[in-house]
C-alpha cells in the first residue's frame, strides 16, 4: 500500500534524491495534500515556483486525486524543445 514519488531536474537536485516510496497516510487524497505532507521534509516542494505534477505519468493539477499504488512525480515547469 505504497506510493512511488519521483522528483526531476532542479527539484531532484535540491532534494538530493530522485525517488522515494511512502506509505499513503489516511486523509491524503490529492496531489496538493501530498505536496504539503512531503513539503515538511522537503521544503523545496513548497518553494518551487509553478511546481508541476504528474500522476501515473500524466500531467495532473494539485486537485487531482491520488490513490494507493500511484506513481506521483513533482517537477519544475518543463523546458524541452
Amino acid at each position: 500500500m505504497t506510493l512511488k514519488i519521483l522528483y526531476f531536474a532542479g527539484l531532484r537536485e535540491a532534494i538530493g534524491s530522485g525517488a522515494e516510496n511512502i506509505e499513503l497516510p489516511a486523509g491524503i487524497g490529492t496531489v496538493g495534500a501530498l505536496r504539503e505532507l512531503l513539503g515538511r521534509s522537503h521544503p523545496e516542494l513548497l518553494s518551487t515556483k509553478n511546481l508541476r505534477a504528474a500522476v501515473n505519468q500524466r500531467m495532473a493539477g494539485m486537485d487531482a486525486p491520488v490513490a494507493d499504488g500511484d506513481e506521483v512525480a513533482f517537477f519544475p515547469p518543463v523546458t524541452g524543445g
Binding site: F8, A9, G10, N50, A54, M59, A73, F75, P76, P77, V78, T79, G80, G81
Partner: peptide, 26 residues
C-alpha cells in the same frame, strides 16, 4: 506540436557555463 511539446513534454535543460551549471527557466 512544437508549442505543446515545449510546455507539456517532461524535458528539462541544464546549461554549463564558466560560472557553473544552471537549470533553464521556463
Amino acid at each position: 506540436i512544437m508549442d505543446y511539446l515545449k510546455t507539456r513534454a517532461p524535458f528539462w535543460k541544464k546549461e554549463e557555463t564558466p560560472e557553473g551549471t544552471r537549470w533553464v527557466d521556463a
